[in-house]
Amino acid sequence: MSTSAGGGPLRTCVVGIGNVLLGDDGFGPLAVEMFRCRYECSSNVEILDLGTPGFDLAPYLYAADLVVIADAVHAQEKPGTLCIYCEDDLLARLAPLRLTAHDPGVRECLARLRLTGHAPSEVIIVGVVPESCDLGKGFSPSVMSTSSVAVDNIARLLVERGVDCRRRHAPVPPNFWWLSGDEQSKFVALR
């Protein structure tokens, strides 16, 4: 891993993945927007809502030092459970063929980058188990209440690795452009 003068990773990406039109599947974009509003990072940290990237994910992972991916995660746990995986957790499981370009994608992307020698030094997935991925329904209460904890965990993971990431004195107002006014106001309390 290349490190900055302060000892932290040089190129860091915090990316949110998910379809904002499909309810809790939009957890990733939600989490990165909340993170951006609550925390301030140095300029070597890219914070991006990548939506549904498929093969477009590779350029963001390419040769990065640290990548944190926020995403909805299908796991056995209850909806709203926060699940944090490191790369070994992913690779320890049987790697199935990629189902769709939007679907897992992450694992295939990493495997290919590794084969070509350009994999990121460290990848962490901060996931939440969705309750409902229905069209245009906004977020369910369980995912909404976990999102705040998830965001603080992203910051903790970065700080532990020496990334310059500080809580803002005054949070920036979020822009959840895909939600209706009613839905947006539910997040004001969480700020």
Binding site: I17, T52, D71, D89, P96, G127
Partner: peptide, 17 residues
Amino acid sequence: CMACACHTFDASGREIA
């Protein structure tokens, strides 16, 4: 391309096809 699949990450390692 069967458009607009739900994008979620499957951590359970199930058989896909």
